[in-house]
Amino acid sequence: MENQLIHRMKVNGDMAVLDVNSGAVHLIDEMVYDVLGVFDGKNDEETVSTLKNKYDESELVEVLGELHELMEEGLLFSPEFDVPETFATEPVLKSLCLHVAHDCNLRCKYCFAGTGDFGGKRELMSAETGKKAIDFAITGSRKRRNLEIDLFGGEPLVNFGVVKEIIQYARKREKEANKNIKLTLTTNGTLLNDENIQFLNDNRVMVVLSLDGGKEMHDAMRPFPNKTGSYDAAVRGFKKIIASRKGWNYYLRGTYTHFSTHFAEEVLKMTEVGKEISMEPVVGTTEPYTLTEEDLPVLFAEYDKLATEYLKRRRGEGEPFDFFHFNVALDNGPCVAKRLAGCGAGHEYYAITPSGEIYPCHQFVGREQYKMGTLDTGVVRPDLVKKFRNTHVMTKPECKKCWARFFCSGGCHANADLVNGDITKPYEYGCRIQRKRLECAIVLQALLTEDTKEGAEDMRPEIDNFKFQVGKTEEKRK
């Protein structure tokens, strides 16, 4: 029985153990893997007697000696700890998602935004509301210097005139208020053209480009209203903007569903368009595309398959690609206070609708009980702010005992609400997928770290927190 203070993992034959409360990662052999299934830090004799039929006793004693050394160094069986004092009770705004268009020129079958209108009327944000939102962000962020604004929809480019005004205003206010604003725009790509690409590049706007894999899969899920596929139009735009940025400052982001569980192949098809890739599971309840229990073993095998290809290419066999969920920095990363805050929805992060309503995040838009105010009134639900702030991995019963808690930050509140009707109850299906891809990420980055220590070129991904890299003249290569 594995001790809850550690987690062992196997990915494609490679093994590692995570010391949950310190973050230490160790690559291990099979004997250590088996020993840690019994050993709890104190029961040496029981461990030897349990495993002596499989391993030589002197070797078992040697392994236990190594494990005791790690314990003395604070790298194994580290004890649990309390919420750090630095986790402030009063949150400070760090990011906003501006719904510049509750309208879209596509009719994607799984869209949580109800094909763009979020279940309401089709509506575009005005420049006045957009500017008010920028002011709300600057005021709410108080002395915090770094701010993030995501331009979202629907499809933001159906309202490009207003998008331009908002971006220009944000850059102006940024200087006046001595802020550093990271701007991101999420688009289906079909409306990208020379003019808007130039504008987005000139204004250092990161882009998230929605692509679901190869042509067949993408067209099946992401059609135009006349039911024709959008792949050709989207990829034309994506290739143009990626080339204009020398392969920097973008992510291709896809969604897999019950109809596309063999997603590894789709990810590899995406590498023909760009090398910065994220592919995420759809979240549903009863819709035909909803992932099922029977899909899970297939999905896990796909992550293993993708991990094999990812490692092979980073070790020199083919062109490396970036996969968002395999990006884990083992040497650094945010402090625990930051890990508890997670995405910040409902306390550090809000979504603003076209009419200026405030919701905890883009996925809560349209769920009336979560409306938190308007740009005119400000946030008028301190009860909700407090609830979101204090719903984290050290307060949620299921999260408290999960080994992945300091990596996942408790999962998505909106999914928990959608599936369980309660943000304090994690969406367990999503947790299982999250744990699988975290195991892949930890083992992959551990192997690449060891490669580096042994003298190979450092092929770990550059985790730049999706910050706009200025002045890149050479193609991105890892």
């Binding site: 590692a16 010391d19 409360n21 310190s22 973050g23 230490a24 990662v25 160790h26 690559l27 291990i28 052999d29 004997m31 250590v32 040697e62 392994v63 190594e66 494990l67 050394e69 790690l70 604070g74 790298l75 580290s78 750090p84 630095t86 083992l330 040497d331 650094n332 990363g333 402090c335 625990v336 206070a337 930051k338 300091f406 980055q445 551990a446 770290t449 060891e450």
Partner: peptide, 15 residues
């Protein structure tokens, strides 16, 4: 030098 364990990182959780 440990024979069975390679420590990859130094405990990062240990603002």
């Amino acid at each position: 030098m440990k024979k069975h364990v390679k420590t990859v990182n130094k405990a990062m959780l240990n603002g």
